[in-house]
């Protein structure tokens, strides 16, 4: 690991002043950043530890029923809170489908949003990678695209965004609150991660020194609590990144879908919300035919791996089917598993 200076920020002002200096990275839970520093893929000269910043390690319910989640709230605390899990069940399921118990205890809300792709070439400094080292090329092009983007990629980069949480957040219309030298600003989470285009190294909307301070869920997001699922296909049913995942949420009134939300993980360089699928579902009956049409709409234009695209369509239809059947009383024993309520063996 490259040597670095360590600064523990005691206030937001101090963090922003230190964070704006060249070569600086913010350190929160460290589960992704320290890993990348060990491989040499990340080489910051200074780390500003933001885990002690006052007030960022808690959430607050807002008067209108929305939820403001401090950036330093740990993934496990967020997922295990009974009120939060009951109000935003797909978010809890997404969180618990990711990583391990130990990692969720360390990883933070803001850090989850800021995590890097798990593309092997990005993590390996010996490989060309436009995202890590601009202009060196993309080692993923031309190979098997199973683990790469089928939507939103470019000739410069086809890496996928690895977060489960962000998929649920995108579907819930979450807002990212950002502090910077100019003050506070906010942006929809669904737009926060940039598509690679010709500059994959840009990664997110954050300017140097800016810092996520909170994620906000609007009150309307609670309207999907009765019909919400997060399903995740992966090579193992636990502690593995998504091959394809989908957050599906419905508001059903008088047997008709009043509003739908659908977002994907594992198939694009950012959490991939599907407005076309959502529009197709609005006013439709919650049945197999509607869900199949929505899945087709969601994957329109996808390219690069036919089997993965077919898998994503089937998963979307299945997640919508599960959502229509109703949110489980509790996050299932195997979060995100397509096997609902089944126990493999004892």
């Amino acid at each position: 690991m490259k040597p670095f200076d360590y600064i523990r920020a005691e206030s937001l002002d101090q963090a922003l002043a230190e964070g704006g200096k060249p070569g600086t990275a913010y350190l929160a839970g460290g589960t992704n950043l320290l890993d990348l520093m060990k491989t040499g893929a990340a080489r910051p000269e200074r780390l500003v530890d933001i885990t002690r910043l006052p007030g960022l390690d808690r959430w607050e319910w807002q008067d209108d029923g929305g939820l403001r989640i401090g950036a330093m709230v740990r993934n496990s605390d967020l997922a295990h809170d009974p009120d939060i899990a009951a109000t935003f069940p797909a978010m809890a399921e997404a969180l618990l489908s990711g990583a391990s118990g130990q990692l969720r205890n360390a990883a933070t809300t803001g850090g989850n949003v800021m995590q890097h792709t798990r593309c092997h070439f990005f993590a390996d400094p010996a490989s060309p990678c436009n995202r890590r080292a601009p202009g060196t090329g993309c080692a993923a092009q031309g190979g098997d695209r199973r683990g790469f983007a089928v939507l939103g990629g470019s000739d410069a980069c086809i890496a996928t965004h690895p977060s489960d949480l962000c998929v649920a957040l995108a579907a819930l219309d979450a807002v990212v609150e950002i502090a910077g030298p100019e003050g506070l600003r906010e942006t929809p989470l669904a737009d926060f991660h940039l598509l690679p285009g010709t500059r994959p190294e840009a990664h997110t909307q954050l300017a140097p020194g800016e810092l996520i301070v909170a994620i906000r869920l609007p009150a309307a997001a609670a309207g999907f609590r009765h019909h919400a699922r997060y399903l995740k296909l992966r090579d193992r049913t636990s502690f593995a990144f998504a091959l394809v995942s989908a957050a599906a949420m419905l508001r059903i009134e008088n047997g008709v879908i009043a509003e739908a939300r659908l977002a994907f993980g594992g198939i694009a360089p950012r959490p991939w919300r599907s407005p076309l699928a959502e529009a197709a579902l609005k006013g439709a009956r919650p049945d197999a035919e509607s869900f199949a049409l929505a899945a087709e709409a969601a994957l329109a234009g996808a390219a690069g791996h036919d089997a993965k695209i077919a898998l994503a369509k089937r998963l979307a239809a299945r997640a919508l089917t599960h959502a229509a059947q109703g949110t489980p009383e509790r996050v299932p024993a195997l979060p995100g598993s397509v096997h609902r309520g089944e126990t493999a063996h004892v």
Binding site: R8, L27, T51, S76, Q102, L103, N105, A106
Partner: peptide
């Protein structure tokens, strides 16, 4: 795996200084 303030974490992905 160790417990930090009673919570299990991976000690390999924790800077000692962060846990002062």
């Amino acid at each position: 795996t160790v417990l930090a303030n009673g919570r299990r974490i991976n000690a390999c992905l924790a800077l000692a200084l962060s846990h002062d």
